[in-house]
Design a protein around this nucleic acid. Sequence first.
DNA 1: CACTTTCTCATGCGAGTGCATGGTAAAAGC
DNA 2: GCTTTTACCATGCACTCGCATGAGAAAGTG
Lengths: 196, 196
Amino acid sequence: MPKIVDHDARRRHIADAVHRVIHDKGMESVSLREVAAEAGMSMGAVQYYVTTKEQMLLLALERIGIWIGERVAAVAARGLAPLDLLRATVLELLPLDEERSYLNRIGLAFQASSVVSENQATAMRLGLPLLLALLTDQIRAAQSAGHLAAHLDAAKEASILYAFAQGIVNSTLVGHYTSEEVAALLDYHLARLGAR
Amino acid sequence: MPKIVDHDARRRHIADAVHRVIHDKGMESVSLREVAAEAGMSMGAVQYYVTTKEQMLLLALERIGIWIGERVAAVAARGLAPLDLLRATVLELLPLDEERSYLNRIGLAFQASSVVSENQATAMRLGLPLLLALLTDQIRAAQSAGHLAAHLDAAKEASILYAFAQGIVNSTLVGHYTSEEVAALLDYHLARLGAR
DNA sequence: CACTTTCTCATGCGAGTGCATGGTAAAAGC
DNA sequence: GCTTTTACCATGCACTCGCATGAGAAAGTG
């Protein structure tokens, strides 16, 4: 065998290029040529690692999921107190700095794209329950620690919290909220759920 | 002058065709030809009423805003009790039946598209404060009637409620929630805000 | 009737699309 | 050294895109 190449690395490289194209010019201008140019490789090389455009998008979508998962896991590893951990986890999902905006722009593009592509919708549905379960656990932990009211339905609160985050993302990305307003809204919401 | 034609009607007809294309095949497959075919007219006729694709999309976006505004106004005209009105208004924004799913699919597509198109983002930002102000008023009314706790910050609650709704839309459109779960989540959230 | 104005259409253009193909360079196995 | 496998690339193909153009049909006015 010749020229041993790290296939995963190449595919990651391509996925990153897809992300940049989506972020800079939107989902509609993702094309094999555009992505190849962004990745600094020939169109033939892209085709070698990715058989079809659909598969290329799925690859990029999966990597976004992994990326978010890693970020959330990193927060969990910080060893914060229960309620702080919950707050930090949700903050991680909001577009409060450049990297999180980048991630959320791409996420929103895939969100919309998934409505029309069943394969993408399936991929989207994989990560969601994991995140909701994590939030549910964190809420339960905060309840046990007496930081959140014991009578709250942890699973429902997790769903509401995540929906809140997603909705805030939408409005923020079209330029409605500032970072400060977003953080203030989250804190207000969490405070309202506090034990009394 | 010949063939007197209702321009607004024609433009509405075109906008409706754009909506159907976005709903059925997604934003990426919106093209002058596709829209013309969907509208049952020639491509030249579409071009006569709409000078550019960008303008066509803006037209379709504006009409979505008008449509949602009308639906929300219709709810307000039903003369419900304060808390019921608030609940009904939010329900109006959720994809709980075919028409609302239709509306929300298109809305989400524009949401994503607006991130990349400044003109669309501007149009999006126009309607949002109106809706938030309406929800804020309804929350204040519910507080005055003793249906919601008086200590709540009405404006923040409105923002949270709307963000919640938008987030739920995202997840529901990719197939995560059922209609029943969505309604249950809203009721749970509102009950938690109730006066005690 | 002509004449003007409004509306509609077919067609062309250059550019870009996803994908298939055939060829080529390089490294490993024999 | 020759073959095989892997990696890559240039190009072609059929198609679609947004938009421009010019011709002409329809319906009013004089």
